[in-house]
Design a protein around this nucleic acid. Structure first.
Lengths: 181, 181
DNA sequence: ACGCCTTATATCGAAACGATATATACTGAC
DNA sequence: GTCAGTATATATCGTTTCGATATAAGGCGT
């Protein structure tokens, strides 16, 4: 999914600046689904504007830098719908955490414990935030569905880490002195 | 996690060519954890060789193109261990599938059904392959742990899709004629 | 026989990442 | 009180990575 379609998707939910589009991939209901950097978003918005798929008005803010608020046009909505019909590419998952744990036998026990506990803590916090935003207001069925999928997956990951943490520490960890060697 | 570390990790499990390293991120026990393209792997291997972290011997194969079999050096092992101690970056998950379903109200019911059923089918096949490779031989505790985490998460995702598929189709789908408009 | 898949390395243009520059204001720590 | 850090906001830049293609040889199916 190219950054232009990603931006159209966000703008289809309401007008936003480049900065706010980035945030919506970090916090909003689209968080954890996709991501894009400023270096991808700003050029994408320029191209979208040049193609007439979005339009923007510059609004100067006092006490804040100026803002370019983009909104989707009807041509943009058509382009989004068209892109949505393309068969989705395979999910991409990349985890340094899993990669490191894969080599658990190269790390001392305390470090493994820290790593796993930090991740459990991250899941607890993330799940709390997600459950909280669940109560706020009405959401379209698609958003609810994806939100529920995220919850189910994160809960499963969290529970697995809690249930098997001690097994890993027992079976994999090397004594601190051998690891340092 | 940079591609060089990724390559060192694979090579730490045994000597391999660039082609085999790529495959190990697609099929082997490292599948679904990380990924890298040829355009990232070959330059990474060159840099690793220049830095003395890996070495290779060219072996001409009959009936096949020549192969450069890379193996990790002791300096490479030290570099890998050092990299493993760095605090892991946040997991990156990118799903066109979820992004599309997020806008379920823009798609006709049959298309949503096709999309979800195809994904359930993918999970079934992937899970079967993962459960199968579970039986084969002994694996280090770290590998078993990560494998188990993957299984837990994929099962949760699959079950969620099965359990909520019909809810989504009922609540979100627009009639085919309004969608086409 | 023809196309397609697999094995294998390598490169190239386009895209994206991650960091940085710039500017202003608020907030918490010492 | 000031000094660092965070937040809002856009933009660019070097480096990395992606995705496709080139090249080459053999197997496999219809």
């Amino acid at each position: 999914m190219d950054t232009q379609t990603l931006c159209l998707g966000v703008l289809n939910r309401g007008a936003a600046s480049g900065y706010e589009i980035k945030k919506s991939f970090e916090e909003g209901p689209l968080a954890h689904i996709h991501e894009a950097s400023f270096g991808a978003i700003y050029p994408a918005l320029s191209r979208l504007a040049a193609d007439g798929l979005v339009e923007y008005c510059e609004l100067p803010q006092d006490k804040r830098p100026d803002k370019k608020v983009y909104s989707i046009t009807s041509a943009g909505r058509r382009a989004l719908e068209k892109a949505l019909h393309h068969p989705p590419a395979a999910d991409k998952f990349r985890s340094d955490f899993c990669f490191i744990l894969f080599f658990a036998h190269l790390l001392p026990a305390e470090e493994l414990a820290r790593l796993i506990d930090a991740r459990i803590h991250w899941y607890d916090e993330t799940l709390a935030r997600m459950e909280e935003c669940e109560e706020l207001g009405e959401h379209p069925a698609g958003e609810r569905f994806v939100h529920g999928l995220g919850l189910a997956v994160y809960r499963a990951a969290r529970n697995y880490l809690c249930d098997h943490r001690d097994d890993l520490l027992r079976d994999a960890a090397v004594p601190a002195d051998t690891a340092a060697e």
